[in-house]
Design a protein around this nucleic acid. Structure first.
Lengths: 194, 194, 194, 194
DNA sequence: CATGAATGAGAGTTCATTCAT
DNA sequence: GATGAATGAACTCTCATTCAT
């Protein structure tokens, strides 16, 4: 595939992303994507064979960028607590966003697939987030900003709460207050004084 | 559309439930259900007009039974801690079950729908569970079996963790140890000694 | 078939008539009639086997009554011209009525069927009307109220104009003025002074 | 829906025309047309969305051609009376034709539709025919070939007679003699000597 | 590479007709 | 007689996928 192709491929993925944001994963058809991209029906097949393949690529792009964003926010110099707060704030924003989010599509995708554990991006991101939080907490404990008995357990617990909030936000609706209250609960458990 | 044979209606709903367990919500077709029920194409339409309608009925049955189960387990005489343990054990079983669970279908259904907050069964069940856990904890605190500063907050937090575990189980896979570890973490936070 | 049946049969035909008035002939289904009658699906088949059969019966009733009406209006004592006027007035009313008329259904029915000439009610009515008009004109000529060279030809011509007006009313729309103008044209041709 | 192949579009319309000739308008299905055209089920939908749309296009073609034919026959040099005769002869042929005529379908179509007066092709053709006949008669009167008091009224009357003959031909059957007699009646009224 | 017409499988839906009760 | 549940054929419409250009 030449250079031009790479560009078009990118364009398709970006456009398809919008479709997935709009309709989730399961009900998206090749036709939907063709129409969104305004390309020819056959043209799409030159690049991808199925919505599954397209979604996987969309997901790959998504997570690559996500990693960038993450490391970006961490590079800033700040106290450990600040970083943790920043991270949680970021999660909150993501959580509450109803537009432009792939969340539902991602869940639907993983409902459908028997993805080998190792290749499961959702899992990889979850585990990586746990590790980061754990390190943040450990750093905070060291500096005596935070209190924590079982840093790994706490980190994991936080992530499960965030997952719980995320799915709740998508299925039952969750207000900003609810999220704030949960975050406060978590921080309080860490001996964090606002 | 009258009630026709209540028995057949029931049969259809039970059979459709299996289909939803198998395929989730979004990709289930009337044809899938017709075939699973081994009834005629037109026959299904005597009872229901759409998969949406069928799913809602399946859901109603499901939650009615769920309520029964819940109150059933509470009737037993036991210490507060035991009841809480029992409840969490129940949740764990439910969580880890990959067969015969409507979880994915329910999530997909609520992804799709703009359900008014008050009619959102998922939400109602969540809120009701929070209240029950809260009462259990309060009872435990009174009997000095448990320790807790903010019972309502803790109850809600527990439920979000459970939600997080549930969606994680469906999308990234979660082992029994992971669930146990999480439950232990929660119980530990309540000053519960195993 | 007992008495009760005859009554129900009548009821079905009267109700079916409304359906044919509403939808024409070709697109009426047995279901339409069942629903309009509020009887059971199977019940209708005890009386009739098809919409075709039902329509034929409706038509029979219709024309029987029509004959009555016709002879009724003729019984009055009046000058020949008055009777002719009365007849044309009646036709005009019928022509312009868009509600409660079987006209379209009848046309559709005869489009569909290869009805033997002798059994064709439309034709029988047409011919009978021609004869009546002819006699009226002849009577008028005798009394020197009217002028006419070829009474049969004129009578037939009048009927074709009326048919033309009728179909035009159903397909292109025809105003009262248009009908009046035509009737005046006809009467003028007969030397009729208003 | 683009224009796709104009040729195939044309082919579909021509084939569909035959179907409408055969079955009228109301009972024609997309399937009928698909089968007549021997194209694929989905293929037809690339060109048209409904039988209604197809019929409208068929009708458009039909009337365009009709206009051509009409102006064609008028271009010939001939006495006014000859042209009128020619026109009526044409109508007669059309009237008596039981094959290859859209007449029934057109009537059924207009039964079904609430077509705005201005867009009603049937009406437009009727009105246009009235004007043409009127002009022919006027020309004939001028040349003293014909006699006529109210040329417009007569023209309209002729058209209603023709309409009456047309619908009679489709519903009760009309012999050639009947038509001839009627035409003779009309011509006689115009002082036309055969 | 790219297009878009064409195909045919498959899902939705309606209804005539039958039949057990 | 009467009911209405049940069946299955027939239609509508959509879309994944292919292929000639």
């Amino acid at each position: 595939m030449g250079e031009k192709s790479a560009q078009k491929r990118k364009f398709i993925l970006e456009t398809a992303r919008k479709v997935f944001v709009e309709k989730g994963y399961k009900l998206v058809t090749m036709k939907d994507i063709v129409e969104a991209c305004q390309i020819s029906r056959g043209g799409l097949y030159l690049y991808f064979d199925s919505t599954r393949e397209i979604f996987q690529e969309v997901l790959r792009l998504e997570t690559e960028e996500a990693d960038d964003v993450f490391s970006g926010s961490i590079k800033k110099d700040a106290t450990t607590g600040d970083i943790l707060l920043l991270f949680l704030e970021e999660q909150k924003k993501e959580l509450l966003r109803r537009e432009n989010t792939l969340t539902q599509a991602i869940y639907e995708f993983y409902f459908d697939q028997e993805v080998p554990r190792k290749e499961n991006i959702l899992r990889k991101q979850f585990d990586s987030a746990v590790r980061i939080i754990q390190r943040l907490i450990e750093a905070g404990v060291e500096k005596e900003e935070l209190y924590c008995e079982d840093c790994e357990g706490t980190a994991r617990n936080i992530m499960f709460v965030l997952e719980g909030l995320k799915i709740a936000a998508q299925t039952m609706g969750v207000t900003e207050e609810t999220v704030d209250r949960e975050l406060r609960y978590i921080l309080h458990g860490l001996g964090f004084e606002e």
